[in-house]
Amino acid sequence: MKLTLNGKSQFFDANPTLQEVLESFGQTGGPFAVALNKEFVPRSQYATVRLNDGDQLDLVVPMQGG
């Protein structure tokens, strides 16, 4: 199945959890947050939310702002 991660296509086995996708990129700690199809997903739900073909995943981190 295909996911769009921060604007780039990525391919995964069928319906991984969000936690599994993040771990596959080594993204297990640090300051970041996730939106799935433009909707915020709380960290507490990473292990239970399953992803589907065509989903759009955005990972954000802190940056400078005015």
Binding site: N6, L22, F25, Q27, F32, V60, P62, Q64, G65, G66
Partner: peptide, 14 residues
């Protein structure tokens, strides 16, 4: 401060 999309596991945000 603000937020930006960044490649997973990058340390810039930290």
């Amino acid at each position: 401060v603000s937020l930006k999309r960044q490649a997973p596991a990058s340390q810039g945000g930290q």
